[in-house]
C-alpha cells in the first residue's frame, strides 16, 4: 500500500525552480489499479519515479508498506526496487544483446537466484506471456508487441508487489496495444498486484477504475464507477 503525503519534487535550473510535483497526496491500496494521465511535462513521470523508488522527493513522504522511501539510502532503494517493483517502459528497454530469456533473467540477478532456477523461472514467465517458443530470440528478432511482452515477463518474473508501467502501449500500433493491455490486465488479476500505469491513451483511461490526472504538479483522482 502506497501513501503519498505532501510530496513535492523541485527541480532547479540556474535561478529557475520548477515544482514537478507540488504537494501531492495519494493513497493506493494493495491490488489497486490506477491510471495516471496528464499533459506532457505535467509531472506524470516524476510521480512514477517516486512510486518506483527511482528518485526521492524534495519534501513529503512516500510510504510503501509502512516504509518511507524518502528516508532510505540508495542501497536500500535499490533493494526495494529489486524485490518489490516491476517496471514496464514505453520503449521496452530490453538489453539488445541478450536473448528474451536472458533479458528476463536480468531481473533475478540482483536477488541472487541461482542460474538454473533463474533460467527456469524466466522460461516460465515468458511462457505465461505467450513467448514460450521465443526464448532464444534477440529483441531485434521480435516484433514490438513481442518485445513488450518480454518486458512484462521481466517485470513479473520476480513476483513483485507493484507493477509500474510507463506508457506501455505508446510505441505500439492498435492491435498490439490491445494485445498488451490484455496481457497486463490478465496478469494484474492473476497475480493480485498493485498496477499503476501512465498513459496518454484516453481509450484505456476511460476503462480505468481509478483515474489520476496530473497538471502542473497537482493531482486529482477520479473514481470511475463505470468500470
Amino acid at each position: 500500500m502506497y501513501e503519498l503525503r505532501s510530496v513535492t519534487k523541485r527541480y532547479s535550473r540556474g535561478k529557475d525552480t520548477v515544482d514537478a510535483l507540488a504537494g501531492v497526496d495519494l493513497t493506493i491500496a494493495d491490488g489497486d489499479r490506477l491510471v495516471i494521465q496528464g499533459p506532457t511535462g505535467g509531472g506524470k513521470s516524476t510521480l512514477l519515479q517516486m512510486l518506483g523508488a527511482l528518485d526521492k522527493p524534495t519534501e513529503g513522504e512516500v510510504v510503501l508498506d509502512g516504509t518511507d522511501l524518502a528516508k532510505l539510502s540508495e542501497a536500500r532503494l535499490t533493494r526495494v526496487r529489486s524485490e518489490n517493483i516491476g517496471f514496464v517502459f514505453q520503449s521496452f528497454n530490453l538489453i539488445p544483446t541478450l536473448t528474451a530469456q536472458e533479458n528476463v533473467e536480468t531481473a533475478l540477478v540482483p536477488l541472487g537466484v541461482k542460474v538454473k532456477e533463474r533460467r527456469e523461472r524466466a522460461a516460465e514467465a515468458l511462457t505465461s506471456v505467450g513467448l514460450g517458443e521465443r526464448l532464444r530470440h534477440l529483441p531485434s528478432e521480435l516484433s514490438g508487441g513481442q518485445q513488450q511482452r518480454v518486458a512484462i515477463a521481466r517485470a513479473l518474473v520476480k513476483e513483485p508487489k507493484v507493477l509500474l508501467a510507463d506508457e506501455p502501449t505508446g510505441n505500439l500500433d492498435e492491435s498490439m496495444r490491445d494485445e498488451i493491455m490484455d496481457v497486463l490486465e490478465r496478469m494484474w488479476k492473476e497475480l493480485g498486484l498493485t498496477f499503476i500505469m501512465v498513459t496518454h491513451d484516453s481509450a484505456i483511461a476511460k476503462k480505468a477504475p481509478r483515474l489520476a490526472t496530473i497538471r502542473k504538479g497537482r493531482i486529482t483522482v477520479k473514481e470511475n464507477a463505470a468500470s
Binding site: 535499490t78 533493494r79 526496487r81 529489486s82 517496471f87 531481473a107
Partner: peptide
C-alpha cells in the same frame, strides 16, 4: 538507458 534500466531493475551500481 540500458544501464538505467538495469539499475531500475535493482542492479547495484
Amino acid at each position: 538507458r540500458e544501464f538505467g534500466t538495469l539499475k531500475a531493475l535493482g542492479w547495484k551500481s
